[in-house]
Amino acid sequence: MTAVSLGFTDSARDALPDLLRADERASLAAVADLLIPHTDQMPSGSEADVQGEFIDRVLSVRPDLLDAVRTGLAQVEEPLPADFAELDARGLSGLRALAEAVTAAYFLNPDVAKLVGYRKRSAIPIRFDEDLDDLVASVTGRGPIYRPTPGLGPSHANS
């Protein structure tokens, strides 16, 4: 197993070959903005640097996605559509995989993560529920709901 597939680290990223060409990154930026546009509250795909650091991070963990990104970008021919609806209408076979890679890159940006309120899972020690007896009281109050093994007792289910 190579260092790259173990997960992203700064040193691993530095060691990566430049996976995408400059023209591919420019194209990725443009497509990213069609997929994820700018709003008053949220940056667009390119504003979140999907085409730079964050697609590299995606590919550091999922090198298998490189082909999907490349294929998707190659299918988006000039002139670029005006919006996502127009892009979607072209029916490109590689769009879904490209969109998923762009989306993953977008949410890896810590500023975006902060805005949506999710970066990663956190450890939450268990505090047991203390009121389960009360909460299940109506369930237990209705009695058994299973059909017993034939010959072993009366049926409880409503069938």
Partner: peptide, 8 residues
């Protein structure tokens, strides 16, 4: 698809 204007 959910991308485009409705994404956020």
């Amino acid at each position: 698809s959910i991308w485009g204007e409705r994404f956020h």
